[in-house]
Write a protein that binds this DNA or RNA. Structure first.
Lengths: 342, 342
DNA sequence: ATGAAAGCGCTAACAG
DNA sequence: CTGTTAGCGCTTTCAT
């Protein structure tokens, strides 16, 4: 380890006791101002840094927060992580990121790993495969700070940061309808996720408002949230081989949206002429696609920030937090050619 | 903090001393097999987990490694981080990620933050603005484990993981030439970075091999590595207003490559008819662009893995490491329409 | 106003 | 084979 000075070194050098030094460093007012000055100056001179590990052991706090997401290499999450880091950093916490790759097993392992690392709190976005959220329930009931963002656990009353998923899907669907599409398919992740359910509800509501049918065959879920290309391919192929194939697709996550495009192309379908596409994604380059993609964009960075602020507040609150907020942010619908007849 | 059992609890429950318990837990052979079994079983039963913070304090090791990159929301780096995590996780290290946003100042602050966090080693990819690498030099000379990847510090003899940048740029440039482009511009990051220099050398070598000119006006650097859109815009606009504008561009990093496209489009230039484009990027969706992009892809995931392996090995080696390796991986050139005359 | 000492959880001499 | 003890760096009573 990279050796640095300790409080003991200072004490020895200045012929003081460690406790005096400690107090001086912490600005206690029961220390003579001369002594204090002496200590502070010397500490400055040797560039003294308190050992955070020793502090953690003492305080029973690790000053770190654990993050559970499906994937870092995902536009939404990398942006959210950015927001998380920005707040965590300024609040004196460091961030340990773990990836589930959409596996519930992996998620549980990650949580346990983070707990054994003594994280002070958890920032989690569930995996697509997660059904059993009892770990979180238990932790939460024991007073352990958890904040969910985006993919929240349904029945656990923690702080949450989400977007208005219903509205987001509603808007996107309505825009497809207004562009003249009538047979709209719905490509989504597992219905384990509340966001999937809500986005589907918004979608359905838009169809209903405009008196459109929704045959069951137009609904397809990808159990791995689009991590596996096969699942997307099967969905798309299944649709296009239908007697009456859809003329548009609404996809409800990053992976699915960007994953759809190459598959449609490879199968020889033109977007939007053969089938239109609109979907959730935080990709910065969706406008560069051929055709430019109509997208629903979430305020990922801000969501990361808010979630972290809430978590830090919970961690640092003296008394048990009793009331939990659910922050609901708005999304942005950006219409481009993929959803407009040429 | 989420309270868990300690070695003391076990000792008390079993009427043993803490040291006996400790030894039993660590499988010492100087412990009676009965006692050992007893301890192990009880520990299992109460789901005992050693406190990593106490361990760290004792061992003077934090079991964490610090990562310094410019940006997480960058295809190359998010993939590299994936590789880093995979190895770190399996080796019992956790990863603290920091972002420089291409600022040298920020980089220094990050390094200091990581050091004060007592990381056991550093995995770094320099920021585009970094000129002064003396922090690393000092650390390295004191025996602190550092591995550079991708953007390495020139004169510090640490382990390194890079790609064959010369060759990568050479191949890409030659492919442009073979497609008939003759006036090829070079869009790059600051020349502080060795990768910029090497990629430029490869570029020049290809031009020379084919007897092509390279007017100085065709060389443009972005001091913020493309983080600021303006810098790219200025470069591109400058070129296109030249009496003899380039007919192709080679861009040498992720941000620059994907940043070029919308600017060219907005200015009304068709790719590749008005100007062709080939560039370094690890984007997964470059083939979906309009037009599909010709790219140089680095084995980011693998680079992250190798760098982490080297770092862990360095951290854990008993004796000071004396010989350092530079791992050089190959890139992949994927030719698509952006660099081929229609 | 300052020092001595205990203790956070764990390991490792040292003693038996 | 097992227990006692000191110590990692720091804070915090409790004395003085």
């Amino acid at each position: 380890m990279f050796q640095s000075y300790t409080i003991k070194d200072i004490a020895k050098a200045l012929n003081l006791s460690t406790s005096t030094v400690s107090r001086a460093l912490n600005g206690s007012h029961e220390i003579g101002s001369e002594t204090k000055k002496l200590v502070l100056e010397y500490a400055e001179k040797i560039n003294y840094r308190p050992n955070p590990i020793a502090l953690s052991l003492k305080e029973q706090k690790s000053h770190s927060i654990g993050v559970v997401v499906c994937e870092v290499a995902n536009n939404y999450f990398s942006q959210a992580i950015n927001g998380i880091e920005s707040i965590a950093y300024n609040s004196g916490y460091h961030v340990i990121i773990t990836q589930t790759h959409e596996s519930a097993e992996r998620e549980l392992a990650n949580v346990q790993h983070l707990l054994s690392r003594q994280v002070d709190g958890l920032l989690v976005s569930l995996s697509a495969q997660t059904v059993d959220t009892s770990v979180y329930e238990q932790l939460h009931s024991k007073g352990f700070p958890i904040v969910f963002f985006d993919r929240v656990a349904q029945h656990i009353p923690t702080h949450r940061v989400v977007v208005n998923n219903f509205d987001a899907a509603f808007k996107a669907t309505e825009s497809l309808i207004k562009s003249g599409f009538k047979r709209i398919a719905h490509l989504t992740s597992t219905s384990n996720l509340m966001i999937s359910q809500e986005r589907f509800k918004g979608f359905k509501a838009a169809l209903e408002k405009h008196g459109l049918d929704f045959p069951e065959t137009y609904f397809r879920q990808c159990n791995h949230g689009g991590v596996l290309k096969d699942e997307i391919e099967q969905a798309v192929e299944g649709w296009m081989n239908l007697p009456s194939p859809p003329d548009a697709i609404l996809s409800t996550n990053d992976r699915l949206t960007t994953g759809c495009v190459p598959i449609l192309k490879r199968l020889g379908y033109k977007i939007p002429d053969d089938v239109a596409l609109a979907g959730f994604t935080n990709s910065d380059v969706a406008e560069l696609f051929d055709p430019p993609l109509t997208v629903v964009r979430q305020p990922a960075f801000q969501m990361g920030q808010m979630a972290t602020e809430l978590l830090v507040k919970t961690i640092e609150s003296k008394k048990a937090v009793e009331t939990y907020t659910t922050e609901v942010l708005e999304t942005e619908l950006i219409c481009r050619e993929s959803s407009v007849h040429a």
